[in-house]
Each structure stands twice: as structure tokens, then as C-alpha cells.
């Protein structure tokens, strides 16, 4: 019997192999994922050897209360058509030789001319290692996507953003020292800082609720 089954499993294996080999790049998906995770993770998190992708949906984490806490700390509403609890979040857990060394997480932030995808590479203490704008539209996009601008975020944590007011842009401490490379685009600058704060807040919520991001743990229903 086993002898009879063997060619069958071989055929199935070959089938999947063919499927695999011939798969090209997928069409761009809406959401905030890295365009090319394998390559991007290596670049954003030097020293990493691998990563695991975790999809998170707010409603599985007790949706509205997570959103409510983020809104309270952001001191702004999550608004519009696109900051709803239906938005999926992706956290990349980063490993170096099987040891967890950090996370990469991205959010979409509404900008003047389009969505701004802001990715943060964070160490285990949720301290920013790399700041990366994957996509942005506008005359000044190049300046904001420049590594020089991004380097100003390195070492910052959620605590540093605590005082940052996403509406007025007023703040104290380390965040106030971040220089706008395009003073003409003050609003874009504020959007980017808001997106960064939002990003840090969500990661913090996810990790607080489920430190290993297994997301088995659900908030008790009220």
C-alpha cells in the first residue's frame, strides 16, 4: 500500500513546486505591509537573520477599546474612512539566530497628497532603530524620505512622543529637536509625526495585550 501511495505524494509535491516556482510578484495589496519584506527587513534591521509576520485585527483584540486608548494617548480622533477598526495591522517580529531582537511595524497616515506609509524598526524596548517612509506623494517627499531626516528619530521611544500634540505640533524634549527638512510643508511634517506617534501607540498596545503577539489573549468583554 505504501508503495502504491508514494508516486501520488510525489505528484502532489511536484504540483506545489511548480506552483511555487512560477509565482511572480503579487499585485500590490492595500494595507501597510512592506513591499518586499525579505529585502526590506534586512535593510531596516541590520543584524537580523529572519522574521515572522503577524497579522493583527483590532476587533480580535477587543477592537473599540484598543482604538479608544490609542485615541486618548494620541489626543486626536482616529478618523475618516481609513482609520477604522477594520484596518489590518502587520507586525514583523525580527530574529537573529532564533533569538527575538525586535519588531517592524508600519501604519498609513493621511498626508496632503496621499497616504504616507511610516515604518518603524523597534528594539525589544520599543526604541526606534530605523525610521522609514515607504511611500509618500508630494514635492517634498524626497526630503522626508531622506535618511538624514529619518536618522533624527533613532533612539526615540513612545515616552518621548508623550508630550507631542498631533494637532498643534507643539512639544518639548527630544521630539522638539527633530528638524523639518521642508519648512514650506509644515503640515506634512506634522502628519509624519502624528503617524509616528500612532505607530508607536499601536505597537505598544499590541505588545501590552499579548507580549509574544500570539494574540491568543483577548480582552475580557465589558
Amino acid at each position: 500500500m505504501r508503495r502504491g501511495m508514494l508516486p501520488f505524494y510525489t505528484a502532489v509535491a511536484v504540483f506545489f513546486l511548480i506552483m511555487r516556482l512560477s509565482s511572480g510578484p503579487a499585485w500590490g495589496a492595500v494595507g501597510c505591509d512592506l513591499n518586499d519584506p525579505a529585502r526590506d527587513v534586512k535593510r531596516l534591521f541590520p543584524g537580523s537573520t529572519g522574521f515572522k509576520t503577524v497579522e493583527i485585527e483590532l476587533r480580535n483584540l477587543g477592537g473599540t477599546s484598543v482604538a479608544a486608548r490609542v485615541e486618548a494617548k494620541l489626543r486626536d480622533k482616529l478618523h475618516g474612512l481609513y482609520e477604522t477598526i477594520n484596518v489590518p495591522y502587520t507586525v514583523y517580529i525580527i530574529y537573529a539566530n532564533k533569538k527575538k531582537i525586535g519588531y517592524i511595524h508600519g501604519v498609513n497616515q493621511k498626508g496632503r497628497y496621499g497616504g504616507i506609509s511610516i515604518f518603524l524598526a523597534l528594539d525589544l524596548n520599543q526604541r526606534i532603530k530605523t525610521f522609514y517612509i515607504q511611500k509618500m506623494t508630494g514635492q517634498y517627499a524626497g526630503k522626508f524620505r531622506d535618511a538624514k531626516f529619518g536618522s533624527q528619530f533613532v533612539g526615540l521611544t513612545l515616552d518621548d512622543f508623550e508630550q507631542y500634540d498631533v494637532i498643534s505640533g507643539k512639544t518639548t524634549g527630544k521630539v522638539s529637536r527633530i528638524r523639518n527638512p521642508a519648512p514650506e510643508a509644515a503640515q506634512e511634517f506634522k502628519y509624519i509625526l502624528r503617524g509616528t506617534k500612532k505607530n508607536l501607540l499601536f505597537v505598544n498596545e499590541f505588545l501590552t495585550l499579548s507580549p509574544d503577539l500570539s494574540l491568543k489573549k483577548k480582552e475580557p468583554a465589558k
Partner: peptide, 22 residues
């Protein structure tokens, strides 16, 4: 999907890069 990707709602602006036209 284009609107979702760009987080656009009615009243927002978009820009054609290179041409810088809103």
C-alpha cells in the same frame, strides 16, 4: 482601492508627481 491606498476622501487633493499639478 486607489483611494484607500492614498487615504483620500472627497475634498482631499492629489498630486501628479513630476508635473506637480494638484
Amino acid at each position: 482601492e486607489a483611494a484607500e491606498l492614498e487615504q483620500r476622501e472627497v475634498g482631499d487633493v492629489i498630486l501628479i508627481p513630476e508635473k506637480n499639478v494638484e
